[in-house]
Design a protein around this nucleic acid. Sequence first.
DNA 1: TGATATCTGGTAGATTCTACCAAAACGGAG
DNA 2: CTCCGTTTTGGTAGAATCTACCAGATATCA
Lengths: 151, 151
Amino acid sequence: MVEEQDEKILAELQKDGRATNQQLAETVGMSTSACWRRVRALEESGVISGYSALVARERAGFATSAILHVSLERHDTKFVDEFVARVMQRREVLECFATTGDADYHLRVVVRDMDAYNRFLDEFMFRIPGIRHVRTNVILKEIKTGVALPF
Amino acid sequence: MVEEQDEKILAELQKDGRATNQQLAETVGMSTSACWRRVRALEESGVISGYSALVARERAGFATSAILHVSLERHDTKFVDEFVARVMQRREVLECFATTGDADYHLRVVVRDMDAYNRFLDEFMFRIPGIRHVRTNVILKEIKTGVALPF
DNA sequence: TGATATCTGGTAGATTCTACCAAAACGGAG
DNA sequence: CTCCGTTTTGGTAGAATCTACCAGATATCA
């Protein structure tokens, strides 16, 4: 489905999401029209789900971030769906994964400062029904924040 | 430093990193030239650190991902620097954060299948000097994988 | 107020996009 | 191997876009 030339394109567009079609065609070694059609196909098939500017968190004024381990009291769809729905619409939550292990969910949360994080917990997290336990691990240093899949 | 109009631009470019300057200028309500100059300034000042195509992990053939909690034996710069250097160049490691709490580091790792993950542990992670403990939490479901800061 | 620096919107040539075309490459069926 | 239908390719041209400049407006501060 995704073949070698496509992977080259994806790798390149992950590195530079605003590369012109001409640059792209040259680096992957095909004509501009062939390249353009492949990119379009990747977009329409949903392999490329979108494009985004990568914004430097601290420079943009978000000084605080944390990783949360969340466990639910019970795992009825009712509670799970409610949890997922709330997390989805809360923009401070950049990532949320259901995982094996002690906690049910791993969340990464980004806010402007500790005060905002405190409010996030009080006004949002602790009010979600069916939460058993929340453990906060404050992020001391971002070693690496990548988005590019390792083709 | 980053003012209100800039935040509008950043928000929009996070949503659509390939928006044309004209679209952008219209949605944030300024002239194309003023908008273009602001974008350029945001790029050059490093607030915008780059652009990336967002690739659907599973559709692109990466079926397996996990969150790792890693602790180091000792925290001399020697070991820390070595750990950081190795993690930086290993492309399966999409994210790595130094955190408070039990583990020293939280990593998110993406691979094609469980076999590749096993190799990742054996050939990479377990060979890093000074590792005390590695706990794997397999990601069962990606609820949310966002990159956009919550302006 | 006046001088200076900064920002604004508009413009035009250069670049790039994108929908089309005919030709080439591919893949079975006979 | 040859034929025919399908898919993919490279090229092209008009439309859209970018980007470096301009003169004028606005802000800053002594």
